[in-house]
Design a protein around this nucleic acid. Structure first.
Length: 326
DNA sequence: CGTCCACGTCTAC
DNA sequence: TAGACCTGGACGG
C-alpha cells in the first residue's frame, strides 16, 4: 500500500472501522516479526490514527471508568500510548473477525466484543516496522499533503544542501524533503510537468517561491491587474513542481479506494488514474539507486514545435473566453 | 520448476 | 553505493 496517500488512507480506514469499538487485553505480535513487542495491556481502550508523510501513528487510549470499584489493574495502562508505523513495500491495516485474520498479520489489537474482531497490521514482506511510544521520525520532513506550507519552506530554504545536486527524480524520494513521495508519485508528478527526470534538482527548483503565491486553498485577496504578475501567476499555477508534490498525492486520496494495491479488486480506479507509471508506451530506466524511473520520452524538435503551436492556440482560446467573461 | 520484479528503507564495507 | 531484508505474483521453459 505504501506512499503518502496510502498511509493516509490507512489512517482514515482505522478511524472509520474502529470508531466506537472498545479494545481490550494485550497487543499481540507475531513470532516471526523483528519489530519490538508493544508493552500495552488495558481492560478497555480505543484506537485512533493520524498520518504524516509515509508514517501512520496509532494512539491507544484507555477508557476511564466512572465506577470507583473499577480500579486499573496492576500492569495495565492508564495512559495513552502512541505506536508509529512505517509500511515498507507491503504494509496495511485490516479490521476482521478473528477467524478471518489475514496471512502476515504481524501486530494485532483485539476488540472486547464476543466474538471479537481484530485490527491487524499486515505486511507480507516485513519491510515495514513499528515503534511503541514512538514519535514521527525526526529526520523526515513535513508531510507533502497536510503540512504543505512548511514542506515548501523546508525545500526552498535548503536548496544549498548537497542533496539537491542529485537528479530531481532521486531527490523526490528523499524523505528529509519529500516525506510522502514514492516511486509512482515521482513519475506522475514529473510527467505532468514534462520535467526530464535526470536534470539536477536545484536547476528545477531554484526560482520557485518559498511561499505558494497561488495557493488554491486561500482566496485571492487583491485582484491582480499587472500583466507581468498575472503571467507569472499563470505560469506558477500550471508549472509549480512543489505544488504538484502536494496536489497530485491528494488526488489519490480523493480517489478513495486503497490507492496503489494491485492485489485488490478496486485497483482499477487507481490504474486508470496513472498517466505514466507502468503505462504502456512510457519509457523506464533504473535510477542511481536501482529504482525504476518511469517517464515519457522527450519529443523530437518537430513534435515540440507542434506542441508549442497547440499550447499557443489553447492559451489564445482561454484569453478569448476570459475576454468574453469580463 | 526457474528468473525477474514490486508502493522502502537500513547498515555496513 | 552496493547489498540486505522478505514474500509472492507474472511469466518463461
Amino acid at each position: 500500500m505504501p506512499e503518502g496517500p496510502e498511509l493516509h488512507l490507512a489512517s482514515l480506514y482505522v478511524n472509520k472501522m474502529c470508531n466506537g469499538v472498545v479494545f481490550t487485553g494485550p497487543v499481540r505480535k507475531s513470532d516471526v516479526s523483528k519489530s519490538p513487542d508493544v508493552p500495552f495491556t488495558c481492560e478497555a481502550y480505543r484506537i485512533t490514527a493520524t498520518s504524516r508523510g509515509k508514517e501512520v501513528k496509532l494512539t491507544l487510549t484507555p477508557i476511564k471508568s466512572d465506577d470507583p470499584k473499577q480500579r486499573v489493574k496492576s500492569g495495565h495502562a492508564d495512559q495513552p500510548m502512541a505506536v508509529v508505523f512505517r509500511f515498507g513495500m507491503s504494509g496495511y491495516f485490516r479490521f476482521t473477525k478473528e477467524e478471518e485474520l489475514p496471512k502476515h498479520a504481524h501486530l494485532r489489537f483485539y476488540s472486547k466484543e464476543k466474538p471479537c474482531r481484530v485490527l491487524s497490521y499486515v505486511d507480507a514482506r516485513r519491510f515495514g516496522s513499528w515503534e511503541p511510544n514512538g514519535t514521527w521520525q525526526p529526520e523526515r520532513g513535513p508531510c507533502i499533503m497536510f503540512e504543505y506550507n512548511s514542506f515548501r519552506e523546508n525545500v526552498m530554504s535548503h536548496l544549498t544542501d548537497r542533496a539537491f545536486d542529485r537528479p530531481i527524480c532521486e531527490v523526490l524520494l528523499n524523505q528529509k524533503y519529500f516525506n510522502g513521495i514514492g516511486n509512482y508519485l515521482r513519475a506522475e508528478i514529473l510527467f505532468r510537468l514534462n520535467i526530464p527526470p535526470f536534470v539536477p534538482a536545484r536547476t528545477v527548483l531554484e526560482g520557485l517561491e518559498s511561499q505558494d503565491l497561488f495557493d488554491n486553498e486561500k482566496p485571492v485577496k487583491n485582484e491582480i491587474t499587472d500583466t507581468k504578475t498575472k503571467k507569472k501567476r499563470m505560469k506558477e499555477e500550471t508549472a509549480d513542481l512543489l505544488r504538484l508534490c502536494h496536489s497530485v498525492p491528494l488526488e489519490v486520496v480523493n480517489l478513495g479506494g486503497k490507492g496503489y494495491d494491485p492485489e485488490k479488486a478496486d485497483y482499477s480506479d487507481f490504474e486508470a488514474w496513472l498517466q505514466c507509471y507502468y503505462v504502456d508506451g512510457m519509457k523506464s530506466l533504473r535510477d542511481h539507486n536501482g529504482r525504476t524511473m518511469w517517464f515519457k520520452i522527450q519529443s523530437h524538435p518537430r513534435q515540440k514545435r507542434e506542441q508549442r503551436k497547440k499550447m499557443t492556440m489553447i492559451t489564445q482560446t482561454r484569453k478569448r473566453w476570459r475576454g468574453v467573461a469580463q
